[in-house]
Design a protein around this nucleic acid. Structure first.
Lengths: 202, 202
DNA sequence: CATTTTCTTTAGTGGTCACTACAAAATCCT
DNA sequence: AGGATTTTGTAGTGACCACTAAAGAAAATG
């Protein structure tokens, strides 16, 4: 309480102020990576798009893969919010059906950024940092599905989660290859029919 | 009939004979690409594994992407032969169930070469030659599935084929992320339950 | 034998990759 | 004003990428 301090504004740091907004940069990076892929977006293209020279980028984010880590964490938080779909008490079949259909719609929505940024990045080279981060984020979301299903169907939770994970990967891949929204929705609905066989028809 | 000619052996060509076997090279290349990916196997690693220097490789195959084109054509011919599964007269649900379960087994069989070489390559950069070739080969196989289904269910053929394509991509992706054979088989069987809803229970 | 043809070898090519050493510029603190 | 601190722009780094020019070596042909 010695000097003025507001809840929001951080006290101005000491040295030269950063000349660009990191959130905007993450957003631009997300668009770039989603449009093609982590590997396909070189540092030159990235820094050009951000309007930032490489040394500034590295001061701010550490490395390309650390930048990407922040990007996918942001993306996973924003896209397909599980909280709004996996509501406690809701019938799993209904919730998972909505999740698959939402995925179908989301993956085809923007023709320039098809599929799921996380799931596509998870297919990168096995030892790569970007793929490792993406798989970690994907697995966190799968854990939430498993926990949700386990509340009502503890015995089927793992099998159902595997099926959801595989189906979402398939939807993302198909979206990337150009399958449009209505076809993806048909795929999702056929998958839901499979889910009903696992979880009961309700 | 002027000189000796056998049905099998081509008459020795004129210049210095090739010092390696192209079929063996394609086979080795297939293993390498399948173990990691087209992009991850550099020309140096490739030619080292083949025991062949770059200029010989280029004389024989033209380019890395042309070599890969031959590799995936070979692979598509050998793995998961559709002729043996999509038998005319067979109930589509049965045939497609066998196809999905065979895929699950095949994709997990060799822990060092998980998933489908073609489907994984089909996810490469959009403009890339390797991805273009892989998608062409994948679509040829999807056409055969569509034709097979259309014989008995012409109205559902496209939707069923989309679901098969998406599910196979999902199985391949899951295999790549480490899902073992029994889990992949469970996923395949759940997908078959979805197929039955589309094609009738039989 | 010499010539022609084809492949193999040696030794590179330019291009792109992620990343950085260094010094100038912009801010805060005393 | 005079440091102290942090970010900036300039200008590169070495490593790897797919690929190749040039010359030597191995075969068939004449």
């Amino acid at each position: 309480m010695t000097t003025k301090e507001n809840a929001k504004s951080a006290p101005r740091p000491r040295g030269r102020p950063r000349a660009f907004d990191m959130e905007t940069a993450l957003d631009t990076g997300q668009r770039l990576f989603h449009a093609s892929s982590y590997e396909a977006v070189g540092l030159a293209a990235l820094t050009d798009a951000l309007g930032v020279k490489p040394p500034s980028f590295y001061k701010a984010f550490g490395s390309k893969s650390e930048f990407f880590e922040q990007v996918i964490e942001r993306y996973a938080q924003a896209a397909l919010a599980l909280d709004e779909i996996l509501l406690p008490g809701r019938a799993p079949v209904d919730a998972l059906a909505e999740l698959l259909e939402s995925a179908a719609r989301t993956y085809a929505r923007d023709p320039q950024r098809r599929g799921c940024l996380v799931l596509e990045a998870a297919r990168g080279p096995d030892g790569d940092d970007s793929a490792t981060h993406a798989r970690r984020v994907a697995n966190q979301r799968r854990d939430r599905i498993r926990e949700f299903v386990a509340r009502t169907h503890p015995e089927r939770a793992s099998a159902v989660t595997d099926f959801m994970a595989s189906t979402m990967s398939g939807l993302s891949a198909s979206a990337r290859e150009g399958m449009d929204e209505s076809r993806l929705l048909d795929v999702a609905r056929t998958a839901v029919a499979g889910l009903k066989a696992q979880l009961g028809m309700d």
